[in-house]
């Protein structure tokens, strides 16, 4: 039997990145400010975690403008969705195996 711990995704072992992925799973797009309010984080902190997820190509970024303000929107990628589902399945297995 494969150890389920090995199937857990390292990119998601952080609460903030996990939160971002969860929110993006159920919304086709979320902008930076809304994520900031949802997660209750500072700009810098949120941006660094978004960058990590972007580097893994789990999320994609679209930059736009509303008037003069920048409006950066995030959405989940196919691979991000797949990885997140695998992570959830691994978590589930872990809980089951320990019961």
């Amino acid at each position: 039997m494969i150890n389920p711990i090995e199937q857990l995704n390292k990119a998601f072992d952080n609460r903030i990145r996990l939160g971002i992925m969860s929110a993006l799973m159920v919304n086709s797009e979320i902008n930076f400010n809304e994520l900031k309010e949802l997660m209750q984080l500072t700009d810098g902190n949120l941006a660094s975690h978004l960058k990590t997820l972007e580097d893994h190509q789990y999320i994609q970024v679209k930059k736009g403008f509303i008037g003069r303000k920048t409006n950066t929107r995030y959405s989940i990628t196919k691979s991000g969705e797949k990885q997140f589902k695998q992570h959830l399945a691994a978590l589930e297995k872990m809980i089951r195996s320990m019961q």
Partner: peptide, 22 residues
């Protein structure tokens, strides 16, 4: 990661899904 941590993680996921979509 132990059992209570995994359950806590799943609770976090559910909470964030709800907060962002409802």
């Amino acid at each position: 990661m132990n059992q209570s941590e995994s359950i806590e993680t799943i609770r976090d996921i559910r909470r964030m899904m709800e907060r962002s979509s409802r």
